[in-house]
Amino acid sequence: MRSHIDEPSDVTVRCNDDRGVGIRLGDAVHPDDDAGATHHAAAGRLVNYAVELHAPGMTARLDRVVGWTGEARELDAFLTDVARDFGGWDGARRWHTDDRDFAVSAVFRSGGRVELTWTLRPCRAADGTWTASVTTVLEAGEQMAALAADVRHFLSG
């Protein structure tokens, strides 16, 4: 995985073991900004973004995942906590959006590797019947820390 910002609005995560497997966070919009509201940096603000999962023969996308910036319960905080524990942990750590349509679980593996399983489950869809997941493998230290920083930058816009 090389977490990097393709454009200011995108974060792409690729699996170290299979570069054809990954996710992309993109199309971030802060709807409150359109309304002319003022924000304090420490106070969270609403952010909508798209999540796309891809693997050989599969692509899944949610166009509107709802999140918040500057919140301890958000994706960037989860990834930062995982990065801080580069020495490992037992079991799986889990995070999800309030709507539970986007979720991530992290499992520490031998050799200082972290498996992140990214899951989309469109609860707002009329049928709500599909679920898609991909697993990316990252190094526990610098790669996880870089990913957390990229996601924090992405969410804050």
Rank of each mutant, 00 (worst) to 15 (best):
A50M: 09
D76Q: 07
T59H: 05
W118A: 03
G111S: 06
T12R: 15
C123N: 13
V66A: 10
D81Q: 11
T59E: 15
P56I: 01
R109N: 15
R61Y: 01
F102S: 06
V13Q: 13
H54V: 06
N48I: 09
R24A: 08
R109A: 15
W89D: 04
T129C: 01
W130K: 09
D85C: 00
G112Q: 00
T97S: 13
E52S: 11
R45L: 11
G70M: 08
D27G: 05
H40S: 14
I23S: 14
L53P: 13
R61Q: 07
F78E: 07
A132S: 13
R84Q: 14
L25K: 09
V47Q: 06
V82P: 12
L116W: 03
D98H: 04
R113E: 12
N16G: 02
F86R: 04
R64S: 05
W95D: 08
L75G: 14
W118H: 15
V66C: 11
G128R: 02
G111I: 08
G88Y: 07
A125I: 00
T69W: 02
D101V: 02
D90T: 05
W118P: 03
D33N: 03
V29H: 08
V114D: 14
E52D: 10
G20S: 14
V11D: 12
A103T: 05
A60P: 06
T12K: 12
A43R: 12
R45V: 13
H40V: 03
A77M: 00
S9I: 06
D99V: 03
T117P: 07
R93G: 15
W89Y: 07
V13N: 12
E74P: 09
V104C: 12
A37Y: 05
G20W: 06
G87Q: 12
V82E: 04
W95R: 11
A125P: 02
A50Y: 04
T80R: 06
R24V: 13
A77K: 07
T129R: 03
V82S: 07
C15K: 01
R121Y: 04
A60L: 03
T131P: 05
V13G: 14
A42S: 14
S9H: 11
A50H: 08
D34R: 09
R45E: 12
G22S: 12
T80A: 08
G112C: 02
G26R: 10
R19P: 10
F102A: 06
H40F: 04
T12I: 15
V29R: 13
C123A: 09
C123T: 11
A37R: 08
A77Q: 10
D101I: 01
G88A: 12
V107G: 03
D63K: 00
R121K: 11
A41E: 15
A42T: 06
F86N: 03
T97C: 11
T38N: 01
A41P: 15
T38A: 02
A35S: 05
T69N: 03
G26A: 12
A37P: 00
H40Q: 14
D85S: 00
A106E: 08
D32R: 12
R14V: 15
L79D: 02
H96G: 09
P31A: 07
F86A: 14
E74F: 00
A125Y: 06
R93Y: 09
V65H: 03
E74M: 01
G111L: 05
A28V: 13
L116E: 01
D90C: 01
A132H: 08
L120M: 06
A103C: 11
A103F: 05
A60H: 01
R19A: 15
H39P: 04
